[in-house]
Design a binder for these strands. Structure first.
Lengths: 221, 221
DNA sequence: ACCTGAACACCGTTCAAGT
DNA sequence: ACCTGAACACCGTTCAAGT
């Protein structure tokens, strides 16, 4: 339920349309990916195109709202896993859920990949997911299940990597995501040599880090 | 140099235009990603839009040609590394080159992700890269550097995963790809428990696997 | 307040007319 | 044989006119 800073109370029909659009778009995106046209979504929902843009000023905003919901789903699952007896198994289960979620819904794959960054709803959902991942990661670390230079952000990003590695063959071998998650999990086990480069901070959300740098630069790498 | 089944000999100006377009598009894609318009590429190259489509019937074909070249570059580097004294270090170096290549060129990131599948040029380049990766992987395995249930295809896909994991923060922390590659490499070390799921065959290219299944199905997962 | 569809700018692609 | 730009279909987005 990522219902953040809304202008307080929508008219009855407006609220209904918003939900309707969210649901219609979610299934459409899951089926065909984000390239479905707004026109088609509007038609499937039985409203005019203009209505879509009244609720979501841009297509990105619509995607953001849906992805935000999905992130919340993963946060819920992660929070529940915090009660689990085996912290390491809980972290692995969390990552597995994340990989499967991406496989199920094509639109989630774009999470945080530049398309959907500056939206406040997504930002809030991503922050919450970051906190959950950090908690799970710290428990697993204290339990001795994973190396001590790995953060919750690492876990979230690697969970994305596991799915993205498998993505090209997703149609042929849907279980491949699990395979690569297993490789990654094995790589997270306690080890001697430290990982190279900077460590993504546990408190720093993806969006925060990005906006800090000012958007739209660095086109020339 | 992926110059495959072309209608034998282009007219002088045509050959020149083709190269010009390839170069112009390559830099444009690397700078701004694949979303640059054909119109802009045509203009930057100083030709009409129609000319672009005469050489590359579709935008995908243009991308395919460029990505194919890039894959060849990685194959060349990999083949050179086959002479290296330390097979395990060679494999790691190969993967590092692959991650860096993706970071350098935004268009390569889409490799084999469904956009660019059925193109024969890409298919040939991907096959070759697959063979190179397989050779490097087998040498490292015989050397005892990696677990024995990992194929060259695994290596290629994981190399993609490493970059994709880091991609959301690529602007802020360009070295993050190396970090996640290190995690993955650690996970590839010889181990007791086998990886779950099917093993991507060393001889089977990504494209081959895909066309075997017949495209356009499996929309409902 | 909210909905709607015509209108706009832009994109990939086609093709008749040129050389 | 190859090049060109006008023309087409489609897309995201805007907005004046309706309720």
């Amino acid at each position: 339920m990522a219902t953040a800073a809304q202008p307080r109370r929508l008219r009855a029909d407006a609220a209904r349309n918003r939900r309707l659009l969210l649901d219609t778009a979610a299934t459409a995106f899951a089926e065909q990916g984000i390239e479905v046209s707004i026109a088609e979504i509007a038609q499937r929902a039985g409203v005019g195109k203009g209505t879509v843009f009244r609720h979501f000023p841009t297509k990105e905003d619509l995607i953001a709202a849906i992805v935000g919901d999905q992130l919340d789903y993963l946060s819920d699952a992660g929070d529940a896993l915090l009660e689990s007896a085996d912290p390491t198994a809980a972290l692995i289960e969390f990552m597995t859920l994340g990989v499967d979620l991406q496989a199920r819904d094509r639109s989630v794959c774009q999470i945080a990949i530049g398309v959907v960054h500056n939206d406040p709803e997504i930002k809030a959902a991503a922050d919450r997911l970051g906190r959950t991942a950090t908690a799970l990661t710290e428990r697993a670390r204290e339990h001795g299940g994973i190396r001590d230079d790995v953060t919750g952000q690492d876990v979230l990003l690697l969970l994305r990597g596991a799915y993205q590695a498998a993505a090209p063959l997703a149609h042929v071998a849907p279980e491949l995501g699990r395979r690569y998650l297993a490789v990654i999990v094995a790589g997270l086990r306690p080890a001697t040599s430290p990982l190279p480069g900077p460590i993504p901070g546990p408190s720093l959300s993806i969006d925060t880090m990005r906006t800090e740098v000012e958007d739209g630069d660095s086109r020339n790498a």
